[in-house]
């Protein structure tokens, strides 16, 4: 099953609920930064969280109120904005991860001209940048878990569907696909998975343990 452009409700709800691995959160926060539609749907799922929170209460400690009020004068004012809009192809939440160590991206070749750069997250899933040369196919691969692929630059085709900047493809166990980068410009994607990908051709499979695909 595949869904073009749109993120399934369950993933947006999972993100709103704070139930997803950090690697997925990076992709979804980036996608929402690029899509009004996803932003509107996310707001609705967060509103469900508001209703859940508002529905039930626990007893506060006896001195809680006094301690809180005493604390107020010591709290510094927060900055006017939480995130600054980023320049270039990386929206702010992603730029944060890409430039975390103040270094430029370290692309590593994974064969067939495709390069990747793994981003550091909490380890329950993995997320990487992929750079696919214009016109180049990514080896056919299936998945054991859920894979999210968000286009940041250029475009790719999967079958007759085209995915451009901001579009997201969700693949799962039943999906066998061969994304092909559109001619003209290298395609840069952000891809997260909660299981290792399995490539069908021999060499990428052998390379898998070395390259953490």
């Amino acid at each position: 099953m595949m869904n073009r452009h749109q993120l399934p409700d369950t993933l947006l709800m999972g993100y709103a609920a704070g139930a997803l691995p950090e690697a997925f959160n990076v992709v979804i926060a980036t996608h929402v930064s690029l899509s009004d539609e996803a932003r509107a749907r996310l707001a609705a799922f967060e509103a469900v969280g508001g209703a859940v929170l508002d529905d039930d209460a626990a007893e506060m400690a006896e001195d809680s109120f006094d301690r809180m009020m005493a604390r107020l004068d010591m709290l510094p004012q927060a900055n006017a904005r939480v995130t600054e809009a980023a320049e270039g192809i990386f929206p702010a939440p992603l730029a944060d991860y890409v430039h975390r160590d103040g270094r430029s991206i370290r692309w590593r070749s994974i064969g067939a001209g495709v390069k990747q750069a793994i981003l550091r997250t909490d380890g329950r899933a993995s997320v990487r940048l992929l750079r696919i040369p214009a016109g180049q196919a990514v080896p056919d691969h299936g998945h054991r878990g859920t894979e999210l692929t968000l286009v940041l630059q250029g475009a790719f085709f999967d079958g007759n569907k085209r995915y451009g900047r901001g579009d997201i493809e969700v693949a799962n166990e039943e999906t066998e696909h061969t994304p092909i980068a559109e001619a003209g410009e290298d395609c840069i994607c952000l891809a997260a998975t909660d299981a290792p990908l399995r490539f069908k051709s021999l060499i990428p499979r052998l390379a898998q343990p070395f390259f953490r695909i």
Partner: peptide
Amino acid sequence: RASVATWVFTIARNRRIDALRKSRRPEPED
């Protein structure tokens, strides 16, 4: 854009991810 309950929920959720799950939560661009 949101009710106070929803806004408080998002703050509480992020605090939970930070304190209980020891993880970071990337947020969409403002």
